[in-house]
Simulated scan of single mutants.
Amino acid sequence: MLPPFTVTRAAVAQIVALGGAVHIGLGSGGCCGTVYAYAVLENPAEASGAALFGCPGAWLLVAPEALDVLTGSTLDYSARIRPPRFRVLRNPRTEHVCPCRRSFGTAWPGAGSASCRSYEPMPWDAEFEPPQRWVKQTGWRRASAEGER
């Protein structure tokens, strides 16, 4: 079954590279108040209640609240931007979007926001180090091995 949004070849290739199953949910945060939350799953059955979509060689699991927001948009992955990440493009259901495409909801407050997520690495990316200026501005620190921040 295909999702009600477009998934680019680059996004499918990244899901396959990550092990074949990625979950998309929503969380609080970012410049505009709501962020897309991504997680790699060992077993697609781990995401109870999520819609399960099969892409060639990959599983995409989408939380119900994220499915409503993502409908009609495009899920992409880019290794050329820093940090490399999934991003949602051309989303007709989100009026206010942060320029980095990581958060949506309320009007963008402008550059320098302490809630900025533009340089936050994907949860599985241990190699990318955000710029020190951004780390100081946001107070960000890498999640510990237990997943706490």
Score class of each variant (00 low, 15 high):
Gly29Asp: 14
Thr34Gly: 06
Arg87Cys: 02
Cys31Gly: 08
Trp59Glu: 05
Ser28Asp: 15
Ala58Arg: 12
Gly112Cys: 07
Phe53Pro: 01
Arg117Val: 14
Pro130Asp: 06
Ala66His: 01
Pro121Glu: 09
Ala39Trp: 03
Leu67His: 00
Pro131His: 12
Glu120Tyr: 05
Tyr77Asp: 09
Ala37Ile: 07
Pro130Ala: 05
Leu41Trp: 09
Trp124Met: 04
Leu75His: 07
Glu46Trp: 13
Val88Thr: 07
Phe104Met: 01
Pro64Asp: 04
Gly54Asn: 13
Ser115Ala: 15
Pro131Val: 07
Gly29Thr: 14
Thr106Arg: 13
Glu95Thr: 11
Val88Phe: 09
Leu67Ile: 00
Asp76Lys: 05
Asp125Arg: 10
Tyr38Ser: 10
Ala79Pro: 02
Ser113His: 15
Val40Thr: 15
Leu89Gly: 03
Ile81Tyr: 09
Tyr38His: 15
Arg80Met: 08
Leu89Glu: 13
His96Thr: 03
Ile24Trp: 01
Ala45Gly: 09
Arg102Val: 05
Asn91Trp: 02
Leu70Tyr: 08
Ser48Gln: 13
Ala111Phe: 13
His23Ile: 03
Gly49Phe: 00
His23Ala: 08
Glu120Leu: 07
Val69Met: 04
Cys100Lys: 06
His96Leu: 00
Arg90Val: 01
Pro84Arg: 11
Gln132Arg: 14
Thr34Pro: 07
Arg117Trp: 14
Arg102Met: 10
Pro84Val: 01
Pro99Gln: 07
Ser103Asn: 07
Val35Tyr: 02
Leu41Asn: 04
Gly25His: 07
Leu26Ile: 11
Cys100Tyr: 04
Gly30Met: 13
Tyr38Asn: 07
Arg87Phe: 11
Pro44Cys: 06
Asn43His: 15
Ala79Asp: 13
Ala37His: 09
Pro131Gly: 10
Arg82Trp: 06
Ala126Glu: 13
Ala50Gly: 03
Val69Asp: 03
Trp108Arg: 02
Pro130Tyr: 11
